[in-house]
Amino acid sequence: MGYIDAHTHLVFKETITEELMNFAMREWGAPREVILMGVKDVIRVLDDANIDYVGIMAFPARKLGTVKEDYALRVINAVRDYADRFAVIGGVEANELTIEETKYWLERQYEAGISAIKVHPPHMWLKPNAYRPEEGGLRQLELVYQFAEDHGLPVYIHTGTSAFSRARNKYGDPIFVDDVAVDFPRLTIIMSHVGRPNWVATAFQLIRIRPNIMADLSSIPPRRVLEYIPRLTEISDKSIYGSDYPGPGVYDIKANLQEFLSIPIPKEAIKKMVDDNPRRVLKPLSRNR
C-alpha cells in the first residue's frame, strides 16, 4: 500500500484549455513537459512515486482567467478509466452565479463524482464566511457549505497568501474560516496551506480547537514545515499531506513526498498524514463504482 497526495494541481493534455495553459506557464513556472502530461503518463509518475491516488484541484477561477464550473466534469471524464487513482475536487464561484446556477453546478459535479469542494477566497475574491449577514449575506456560498455537509463532501478552503498576479490576499486570513466551522458543525473543513506564511498561528489554533477543521500541509516546503508548525505532531491526527504539484516550486512529486517522509518526527505521525487521514476524508472516484 502506497501514499496519498491530497492536494495537487495536475492538468492533462486531454483537458487543458489554452487559457489554463497560458496561466500555468506564466504563473506556475512549471516545465511544459510537466504541464502537458497525458493521463497515462501521470499514472506512471504516480506508480514510480508509490502514490496510490491524488487529489486534483478542478475548481473554477474566472478572476484568474482560467476555467469555469464545467472543468471538473472534463477532468472526471478524462480520468474515469483510472478511478481508483484520482479524487477530483470541484467547486463553484458563489459570487459569480445565481442561486439556481449554484444548485445546478453542485448537483452536476456531485453526480459526476467529485470527492470534495474547493473554496479559494484569494482567487474568488470573497471571504469564506461571506454568507453571514454581517459579511454580505451571500446565499450562494451558504448553499455550497450546506450541500457539502448534506452530501458528506469535505470542503477545502485556501488560507494564506497567493503569489498569483490577480490574487487578492486580504481574503486569505483563516480567522474567517472559524464562522464556517461553527455554523456547519457536521462539515469537514480542510484548511489548505495552514495560513502560510502570515497567519500560521491563527490557523494552527483553529485546527486545535475546532473538531471539524483539518490541516492541509500542501505548498509548505517539507524541509521547512517544522519551522512553520513546530508543534506539528500535536495535530498529526488532523493533518493531511499534499504536494501542490506542479504549482510554483514543486516540479517533482516524488521528491516532494520523499522529503516529507524524512521530516524528523515519529514515523507513526508521518503515516497518519500521508496515509490514514487522507484515506478517511478524501475518497477517490472509484467510491461510486
Score class of each variant (00 low, 15 high):
Ile4Phe: 04
His7Trp: 05
Leu10Phe: 10
Val11Lys: 07
Phe12Asp: 01
Lys13Arg: 13
Glu18Ile: 05
Phe23Asp: 06
Ala24Met: 14
Met25His: 04
Arg26Thr: 04
Glu27Ala: 04
Trp28Pro: 01
Arg32Gly: 03
Met37Asn: 13
Met37Asp: 01
Val45Gln: 14
Leu46Cys: 04
Asp48Ile: 01
Asp48Val: 01
Asn50Glu: 15
Ile51Trp: 01
Tyr53Gln: 14
Ala61His: 12
Leu64Ala: 15
Glu69Val: 00
Glu69Cys: 12
Asp70Ser: 14
Asp70Ile: 08
Asn77Ala: 15
Asn77Gly: 15
Phe86Arg: 14
Ile89Arg: 06
Ile89Phe: 07
Ile89Glu: 03
Asn95Thr: 13
Asn95Cys: 10
Leu97Tyr: 04
Thr98Pro: 05
Ile99His: 03
Glu100Trp: 06
Glu100Thr: 08
Lys103Asp: 12
Leu106Asp: 13
Leu106Glu: 10
Tyr110Val: 10
Gly113Asp: 02
Gly113Pro: 10
His123Lys: 08
Met124Ser: 12
Met124Arg: 03
Trp125Cys: 00
Lys127Ile: 03
Arg132Gly: 05
Glu135Lys: 14
Gln140Lys: 02
Glu142Phe: 11
Tyr145Glu: 00
Tyr145Pro: 01
Asp150Val: 02
Val155Gly: 01
Ile157Leu: 13
Ile157Gly: 09
Thr159Cys: 10
Ser162Trp: 01
Ser162Gln: 11
Ala163Asn: 15
Phe164Val: 14
Ser165Cys: 09
Arg166Leu: 14
Arg168Met: 07
Pro174Ala: 06
Phe176Pro: 00
Ala181Lys: 02
Phe184Tyr: 15
Pro185Asp: 03
Thr188Tyr: 03
Ile189Phe: 05
Ile190Glu: 05
Ser192Thr: 09
Gly195Ala: 09
Gly195Leu: 13
Gly195Pro: 07
Pro197Cys: 03
Trp199Pro: 08
Val200His: 00
Ala201Trp: 11
Phe204Trp: 11
Phe204Cys: 04
Leu206Cys: 13
Met214Thr: 00
Asp216Met: 04
Ser219Pro: 00
Ser219Met: 14
Val225Ser: 10
Tyr228Leu: 10
Tyr228Pro: 02
Arg231Trp: 09
Arg231His: 05
Thr233Val: 15
Tyr241Met: 09
Gly249Ala: 07
Tyr251Glu: 02
Asp252Tyr: 07
Ile253Asp: 09
Ala255Pro: 03
Leu257Asn: 11
Gln258Asn: 14
Gln258Ser: 05
Phe260Ile: 03
Ile265Tyr: 12
Lys271Leu: 13
Lys272Gln: 13
Asp276Arg: 12
Asn277Thr: 10
Arg279His: 10
Pro284Gln: 04
Leu285Tyr: 11
